[in-house]
Design a protein around this nucleic acid. Structure first.
Lengths: 140, 140
DNA sequence: CTTATCCGTAACCATGATGGTTGCGATATT
DNA sequence: AATATCGCAACCATCATGGTTACGGATAAG
């Protein structure tokens, strides 16, 4: 499965935005919590903005804000905002079309993988950013 | 999510073994269907053997055979045999422990991701190698 | 209007994962 | 003995990923 941490960081960012209240947070501040470079944060936030989850504002006092109530943002929405392709990639080189299995396996797998991804997304849809904020607060 | 094709190739191999009947198939023959190098095939088959799904035999006339009826082998078993770590990796560098969110987010995420993975596996468990063989046959 | 912030984005780099390849020893069949 | 096949280590090219620098543009504060 995918080996990048963008989904994890995206959730982290949104949880932080929800936790720290309505004031805008700068990418530098967020990077301090995530422990990475501000540009990495902005790259991910660009996707979240494209998905309508956050807005950005330049200049002093600027930064990033949530556009939706944390109760209404599910992990599924975040997952989709990251534009991951498929959770399971197919063959790196196309299989042998002269083999009955090679000729047909990819189409069959695409259907199965799609089904699995739907199941995954349905589970992700059951968790909201608000719930994660709740978790953090409990831990204090 | 993970970006490797081992799961896909593993399913391909097992489907081929089930489709081509009980005679052993060589890694070279399998590689011809998958369109890759025999060593790549053997690497994946080593995992499947470790999981008790196939057996291997050296020497002329040797090769690989299924150890279980295709009706009893689900995609979940294949998935687990590949020993993928977690479908969603956590941060590459640990988040800031001085931040309330950074300090607690990983544990919360591990729980959520675990839940999502269970949902995924449950869906994978609904498909057997026999069903994939059926798909191939229909297509002929 | 000038200055200090802050975002937006391109470009580059180091690192690691992945798949492909070669080589050779071990094993089993004939 | 000869052949076919696995087992496995070693190496390599390619690519994805995250980190970093750099710089232009926009905006708020004074």
């Amino acid at each position: 499965m995918n080996n990048n941490t963008r989904f994890t960081v995206a959730i982290h960012i949104l949880t932080l935005l929800a936790y720290c209240g309505p004031e805008p947070l700068t990418s530098e501040f967020i990077a301090g919590s995530v422990n990475t470079n501000p540009v990495v944060i902005r790259r991910i936030l660009a996707n979240l903005r494209q998905a309508g989850l956050v807005s950005s504002q330049g200049g002093p006092g600027g930064g990033w804000q949530l556009l939706k109530a944390p109760e209404t943002v599910t992990l599924r929405q975040v997952f989709l905002a990251m534009e991951e392709t498929s959770i399971f990639p197919l063959h790196s080189s196309d299989p042998n079309p002269l083999c009955p299995v090679g000729r047909t396996i990819q189409q069959a797998l695409m259907r199965r993988f799609q089904s699995a991804q739907v199941a995954l997304e349905q589970d992700l849809d059951r968790t909201t950013i608000a719930q994660l904020v709740q978790n953090v607060s409990e831990d204090c």
